[in-house]
């Protein structure tokens, strides 16, 4: 798994799934359209500002709320390639990893500002802030999850595993 490099989009604590995926964004809408409403109640400019390869940075309890996996799905569709947070809400954490999107616990996200260029090594669990020349430590992911992410997420991982056992 290679390094992920992109611009940081920085938000605070308790970014909830009702903001990441407002109900109107998935109730009667295809994800390609719905993802444009990602984070709309908090920051209507977010979806338009994300570029492929960018990194979402949050404080504590990232992804709190419902189990709707449109929350990480939309982030990924917009181009987000990794999510860093001081802590995650547990269902969002699993959903994010299940989509093959690295979710890394990083205690020092306060040292990241909007627009900083980050380079993340998901295997080693390190974040280099290329804008400030600081290296931040993340908690490394458990091995079984690294395998799953390397396969491209849970479904791809299952496909591989089920084929192997067939």
């Amino acid at each position: 798994m290679s390094n992920i490099q992109g611009n940081a989009h920085v938000y605070g604590d308790n970014i909830d799934t009702d903001q990441l995926a407002p109900i109107k964004s998935y109730m009667n809408m295809e994800p390609e359209e719905g993802c444009k409403f990602c984070l709309e109640p908090l920051d209507p400019d977010f979806a338009g500002a994300v570029k492929d390869g960018d990194i979402f940075v949050a404080g504590n309890n990232m992804g709190i709320g419902s189990s709707r996996e449109q929350a990480p799905m939309f982030l990924k569709m917009l181009g987000i390639r990794a999510v860093l947070a001081k802590s995650f809400s547990r269902i969002f954490y699993r959903n994010t990893l299940n989509f093959g999107l690295p979710a890394l616990v990083c205690a020092e996200t306060d040292k990241i500002s909007k627009g900083d260029v980050l380079s993340i090594d998901p295997l080693a669990g390190t974040v280099e802030n290329l804008s400030t020349h600081e290296t931040l430590a993340c908690q490394p992911l458990p091995e079984h999850l690294l395998t799953m992410i390397a396969d491209g997420g849970l479904l791809a991982h299952l496909e591989k595993k089920l084929k192997k056992s067939a």
């Binding site: 709320g65 419902s66 189990s67 269902i91 699993r94 959903n95 849970l154 479904l155 299952l158």
Partner: peptide
């Protein structure tokens, strides 16, 4: 569903998961 925790009132252990995770369980 995130409020799957409710069943714990009856002494069961029940956790909420997303749809992809559920696919793994179904499979």
């Amino acid at each position: 569903d995130s409020h799957s925790t409710t069943a714990g009132a009856y002494g069961a252990f029940m956790v909420g998961v997303g749809a992809t995770e559920m696919t793994g369980v179904l499979a």
